[in-house]
């Protein structure tokens, strides 16, 4: 997910970002990952639809190895939903919009 519409986060600012009062959905991706690209447009749509309710962010796993390691991520795209800094649920693979909406709604 290489879009500029989604804010990128890194290992350094990860913890403070996900501890915000608004729930966060973090898209762990890499530039060489086809399915990450495939779900890109859907993630952009969701970021627009849930503006103010859920913050959608992306983290490049190539540049930021520490956070994916901490969460045991072994496949991308992996999307993890956080509320007040804690993991609510996660999903792996190029899933459909409905599955992502169902995931996001778990934090609302």
């Amino acid at each position: 997910m290489a879009s500029d519409k989604i804010k990128a986060i890194n290992d350094a600012d990860f913890k403070t970002t996900i501890s915000a009062s608004v729930p966060c959905l973090v898209d762990f991706w890499a530039p060489w990952c086809g399915p990450c690209k495939a779900i890109g447009p859907v993630i952009e749509d969701l970021a627009e639809e849930y503006k103010g309710k859920v913050t959608i962010l992306k983290m490049n796993v190539d540049d930021n190895p520490a956070t994916p390691g901490q969460f045991g991520i072994r496949a991308i795209p992996t999307l993890i939903l956080f509320k007040s800094g804690a993991v609510v649920d996660q999903i792996t693979g190029a899933v459909g919009k409905k599955q992502l909406v169902d995931l996001i709604n778990k934090a609302l």
């Binding site: 399915p35 990450c36 072994r74 991308i76 792996t92 693979g93």
Partner: peptide, 17 residues
């Protein structure tokens, strides 16, 4: 274990191994 060691896309996930 999908995403935690089980994968269907070597191109995507090989670098984790």
């Amino acid at each position: 274990f999908t995403g935690k060691g089980v994968s269907y896309c070597a191109t995507c996930d090989a670098p984790f191994y």
